[in-house]
């Protein structure tokens, strides 16, 4: 095995982007089904989601071979090639005018746009929520009050924006799996279950991140909401376990499960993903410890999600 083409930054990105999408997805549904009328969780999910996505994007940009050209994913603007006519006439003709780059068959092209739209929607939501809650400029004065005054007429758009965020949260979660499965690497393309596995993991890690954030911000009526979230997390862990079993069965039928479940990687898989990430959180839920160790399960689920991304990303390239 040579150098990994996709290494640590990529699986951190898949983990963080998935977590951001999953947190938003979970919070939106909890709000939609009436258990979070003040949108406290939705706001929390947006506040943690936007930085997570941006951190993830930063990680992959740094990991690119030519980081300074990252914007090529979005626009075909190439000032350095205006006088370079190499690789045939067609290449030089495309240098001008600049064009929007969008490739329907490339999950990474779509992913790039999904990340941007999700982040922009998140930032817009945060701005509108702040404007909504800000006091009038007479009372508060200064620049921020003035900005809030400008934004206030846009507040009715909040609901539409939360729906856009929801759609792109789903796209974001799915992207983290599809980007791997649209390849020629055996482990990633032998099954249709990489996207489902990553969506399930994104949702559980997202909900876990929400629970940790809620606990740390000391929300009112925390106990009642936390109990609901813990139940939801337990169901999510069970679903993820089912998807994981299906994933392993599919891969073993295809005869390619080896690198994932044996050797050093297998150790990480069994201990990190299965034991720490799924079985122990599940066991804690049904044990006497659950009242005392509030953050143990969410923290383990987060860790399990990271190890899952790592072993799948590395295993595919072995």
């Amino acid at each position: 095995m040579g150098e990994l083409t996709w290494g640590t930054p990529l699986f951190f990105d898949l983990w963080m982007a998935g977590m951001a999408g999953g947190a938003y997805f979970a919070a939106f549904l909890i709000h939609l089904f009436g258990a979070d009328e003040e949108k406290r969780l939705l706001k929390l999910a947006t506040y943690i989601g936007v930085p997570l996505v941006l951190l993830g994007v930063l990680a992959i940009i740094i990991d690119l071979g030519e980081p300074l050209r990252a914007f090529n994913i979005y626009v075909g603007l190439r000032p350095w090639s205006w006088q370079v006519v190499s690789g045939g006439g067609a290449a030089s003709l495309r240098a001008w005018p600049p064009s929007v780059t969008f490739h329907l068959t490339s999950p990474m092209s779509l992913g790039g746009w999904i990340l941007v739209i999700f982040s922009v929607a998140g930032v817009a939501l945060i701005a509108l929520w702040l404007a909504e809650s800000a006091e009038s400029p007479e009372q508060r004065g200064g620049f921020l009050g003035w900005v809030a005054d400008i934004l206030r007429p846009l507040v009715p758009a909040t609901k539409a924006l939360t729906w856009i965020g929801f759609v792109f949260a789903i796209l974001l979660m799915a992207y983290t799996g599809v980007v791997l499965s649209a390849s020629s690497q055996t482990l990633w393309q032998a099954t249709f279950l990489v996207p489902p596995l990553f969506v399930a993991s994104a949702t559980s890690t997202g909900l876990a991140a929400l629970m940790i954030a809620l606990q740390l911000t000391g929300a009112r009526e925390r106990a009642a909401v936390m109990a609901q979230l813990r139940k939801a997390l337990t169901v999510l862990v069970i679903v993820q376990l089912v998807v994981l079993v299906g994933f392993l069965l599919w891969l073993s039928v295809a005869g390619v499960v080896g690198p994932l479940i044996s050797g050093t990687l297998g150790l990480f898989f069994w201990v990190g993903v299965v034991l720490l990430g799924l079985l122990i959180p599940l066991g804690l839920e049904f044990s006497a410890l659950r009242g005392r160790a509030v953050l143990a399960s969410p923290a383990l689920v987060l860790l399990g999600g990271l190890v899952l991304r790592a072993v799948v990303v590395i295993g595919g390239q072995m």
Binding site: P195, T203, L233
Partner: peptide, 27 residues
């Protein structure tokens, strides 16, 4: 990319199942 549409769909279907199972059920 021969299955890319199906792979996107498998992700969306999972999101649908998750929306129904833990969230709708629990809430």
């Amino acid at each position: 990319t021969r299955n890319v549409l199906g792979q996107w769909l498998s992700g969306f279907v999972t999101a649908g199942v998750l929306a129904a199972l833990p969230f709708w059920l629990v809430i």
